[in-house]
Design a binder for these strands. Structure first.
Lengths: 162, 162
DNA sequence: TGCGAACTATTGCGTGAACAACTATTGTTC
DNA sequence: GAACAATAGTTGTTCACGCAATAGTTCGCA
C-alpha cells in the first residue's frame, strides 16, 4: 500500500530500494535503446562518449587523465579505448610539450565525421525514449532534481561538462 | 530558463546529451557510494541485487529465468552469479517438479541473514546520497517522472517489482 | 642543486559478463 | 503420437574493464 507515513516496516520492501531500482531500470532501458544504433555504427557506448567529450573540447582534444575523468573510467581503461579508436583512425595521440608526462588525445576529422553522422539518429532515440516522454516542464524539473543529486554524489563535477 | 525556443543548434552541444549524461553521472555516483559497503560485506552489487529479489519473492525463491529478468542480466551471467552465491552458502538451487527444465533459486537462511545485516547500512547510504538529498515532495516527483520513462523504455516491467 | 614525493600514461594480470553452442524438456501441429 | 519448434539452464569462449606494478616526468623543499 502506497503509504504516506514513515513506516519502520521491513527493510526488504523499503521504498528507497525501489527508488534505486527505478534509476537502474531507466538507465538499462535507455542503454538498450541506444545499443542497436551504436552497434550498426561499430562503436561501443564508451567509444561514442569519448568522441563526444573530445568534440566538445577546445581543438577537439583533451589530456588523457581529464578525458578519463569525464567519461567516468579508469586511466587504464581509457588507454585501451583510445587504442581501439586510434586503430580505427578516429582518434590521434600526440605528446604534450608543456608537460612531457602528458598525452593529448584528439578526435581526427574522421572521428568528428563519424560522430556527426551518428548524432542526429542518437538524438532522435533520446527524444523518443527519454526527453520526449515528458512535457518540457517535467523535463526541466527532472533535470533540476537529478542535478541536485549529482552535485552531492559528484561534487567535483559541478564545473564539468554537463 | 536555459531555452524556450527549440534551437537547431550544433548537435554536439545539444541539451539532450547532457540530460543523458546527467543520468549516467548520478548512477555512477551512487554506485561509488555503495561500493565500499558492498566490498566489506564481500558481495558484488549484482549478488546483493539477486539476494534482494529473492527475498522479495514468495518463499524467497524464483525461477532462474525470472530472476535473470529482474536483475537485468543474461541467463548465462546469472548462472555464474548463482554459482558464486551457492558456493558461499547464500543461495540454494532445487529442481522444479512442474517443469523439469526449470530450476528454483532460493535464498538460504544464511543468505537472508546476510541481506538483513547489510540492509540498514545500505538504506542509510541511499538516504544520505539520494533520497535524503531531496524534499519528500521532490522525491515523490522524481519517482513519478522516472516511472513515466521506465514505463516507456521497459513496458513489460510495469507489473514487476519496482 | 639534488633527492624524494607525487603525477601521467601504459602494461600484465585477474575477473565478470555477454554471446553462441549444446542438452534436456515441453508444447504444438498434423 | 511423432516430428518440429520453442524454452530453461549450463558451458566454452571472448572481451572489456579495473587494479597493481612500472617507467618516465615534474614538483617541493631543504
Amino acid at each position: 500500500m502506497t503509504n504516506t507515513a514513515p513506516t519502520a516496516a521491513d527493510p526488504i520492501t523499503d521504498e528507497r530500494l525501489t527508488a534505486t531500482g527505478l534509476l537502474e531500470e531507466v538507465r538499462a532501458g535507455l542503454q538498450e535503446a541506444f545499443a542497436s544504433q551504436f552497434a550498426e555504427q561499430g562503436l561501443s557506448p564508451l567509444e561514442f562518449e569519448v568522441l563526444l567529450r573530445l568534440a566538445r573540447s577546445p581543438q577537439h582534444r583533451l589530456r588523457m587523465a581529464d578525458l578519463a575523468a569525464q567519461v567516468l573510467m579508469s586511466a587504464s581503461g581509457l588507454t585501451r579505448v583510445a587504442d581501439r579508436l586510434e586503430a580505427a583512425g578516429l582518434l590521434e595521440r600526440s605528446s604534450c610539450s608543456e608537460d612531457r608526462r602528458g598525452t593529448w588525445a584528439a578526435a581526427t576529422p574522421a572521428g568528428m565525421a563519424r560522430l556527426r553522422a551518428m548524432l542526429p539518429g542518437h538524438l532522435e532515440v533520446i527524444e523518443r525514449w527519454y526527453t520526449g516522454v515528458l512535457s518540457p516542464d517535467e523535463l526541466d524539473l527532472l533535470i533540476r532534481l537529478l542535478r541536485k543529486i549529482r552535485d552531492v554524489v559528484r561534487p567535483g563535477a559541478v564545473a564539468g561538462v554537463a
